Simulated assay, not measured.
Amino acid sequence: MLTRRYQARDIQTALDLVKKDLGPDAIIFSINKVNDSNFLETTEVVAGKDYPSEKIDEASSLIKLKEDLEFIKSIFIQFLSNCEENIKTNKDLFNIYSRFVAYGIDESWISKFIKKIEYKKKALISTILSHLKDSIKVIDLCSQKHSKIWAFIGPTGVGKTTTIAKLATRFALEGKKLAVAAAGSFRIGTIEQLKGYTDIIGMSFECVSKPEFLKKFIENHKNKDFILIDTPGGNPNDLIYLNQLKEILMAHPSIEKHLVLSATTKEKDLSRIYSQFTIFPIKSYVFTKIDETQEYSGIFNQLIKTHIPVSWIGIGQRVPQDIEKASKAKIA
């Protein structure tokens, strides 16, 4: 990786220099105030750029293809293996079971639930839908009993930065005082996006690269109504990335971790991402891109299996209106 330092009179000028030199995919490692050779305060940005290999790992592609084919092959076997015997032998029950499985509801859950309750076809369907709704948990993070220092974690591309921009603008319009931090190494576009919104609504913004800097930022803004912390996206299978993220978020005990996931993500991948991010105590889910799919079974199954509540749902790209507090009515 190529790494360089840039100094300018302000953050925007320094970011412009980075973009001109390294391009729009530059990674920002830190932004600090320093004194130049004339002892005048300037902004120093440390940035770098990856030059990835263009080689295609054909072996990995073949392995992935084989795994996908094996998964498809096992679907029918799994479908029947999770089905209770009394359901297999009852046409009406099997039709109901198949209907919910076709919607994507977890086979073992629906099979066990049908077995537990008395069979009446119409009542059964209504009861299952009601029980699904009751199984979902939601949480209001704006209530006084919850911490107001929120870190948004999750893989690349799920909308963490956009979620923060929506919440920051929404809270500012409500008259709340808040501060925003970017904790870690970010692409230059992310820094410019956050800085653009925070400048418009007149709130504090800093890019912090180390735990001690984040701790100082939180202490400096402890009287704010909200402190929102953006984190860099990464591969959830990359343990180095996860441990670096964990290290910086251990800076303060009051930081709540909220896992941001896209509603368009496949159920198998949702489970895998959640599993990797369990190195953090996850306070809630934030589901984004709800408007981009009509298939919500992966979300339902994730909520049923993990018992973690949903706090916010993203329903579009508009800032700030396309984010809503989660409710059972909206999710179910």
Rank of each mutant, 00 (worst) to 15 (best):
E192W: 01
E206F: 03
I279N: 08
S60V: 10
Q294H: 13
E107V: 07
V208Q: 08
T156M: 07
L228F: 06
L93A: 07
K112S: 13
D16K: 12
K222A: 10
L17W: 07
R5Q: 14
L259F: 04
T127W: 00
I308K: 06
I255W: 03
S108L: 14
L178P: 04
I87Y: 04
K246F: 11
I227K: 03
F217E: 11
Y103M: 14
V101A: 06
T198V: 10
E85K: 06
S111D: 08
I77E: 13
L141D: 03
E192V: 15
W109F: 13
V101C: 09
E206G: 00
L22P: 07
F186G: 07
Q317A: 10
K257I: 13
G157A: 10
T161R: 04
W312D: 01
V286Y: 02
L124G: 02
A172Y: 01
K112D: 13
K116S: 14
H307P: 00
E292P: 00
K66C: 10
L80W: 12
I273K: 00
E295F: 08
S284I: 04
I77Q: 11
K91M: 06
I136G: 05
T278E: 15
K66N: 13
H252F: 12
L303N: 02
A59H: 12
S111P: 10
K160H: 00
D322I: 09
I164R: 00
K115E: 14
D36H: 08
G234P: 11
K33W: 01
Y51I: 15
L124R: 02
A47G: 11
Q321A: 05
V34R: 02
K268E: 13
I11Q: 02
H252M: 09
T163R: 05
T265K: 05
I96W: 01
K283R: 11
I282C: 09
D199V: 09
K20W: 00
Q244M: 07
L22N: 06
L239T: 15
I136W: 02
Y97K: 08
D199K: 09
F186A: 11
S143W: 04
W312H: 05
L17G: 01
R99Y: 14
E267T: 09
K289Y: 05
V158T: 13
L214V: 14
T265H: 05
G316T: 07
S204V: 12
T13S: 11
Q78S: 14
E44Y: 06
E292I: 08
Q144N: 14
F39E: 15
W109C: 03
D140N: 13
L129T: 04
E84Y: 09
G157F: 05
W312V: 00
C83P: 06
T127H: 02
L22V: 12
S61D: 14
I191N: 02
Q302Y: 00
V18P: 04
I255S: 02
G48A: 10
N35T: 12
T231P: 04
T162H: 06
D322S: 03
L2S: 05
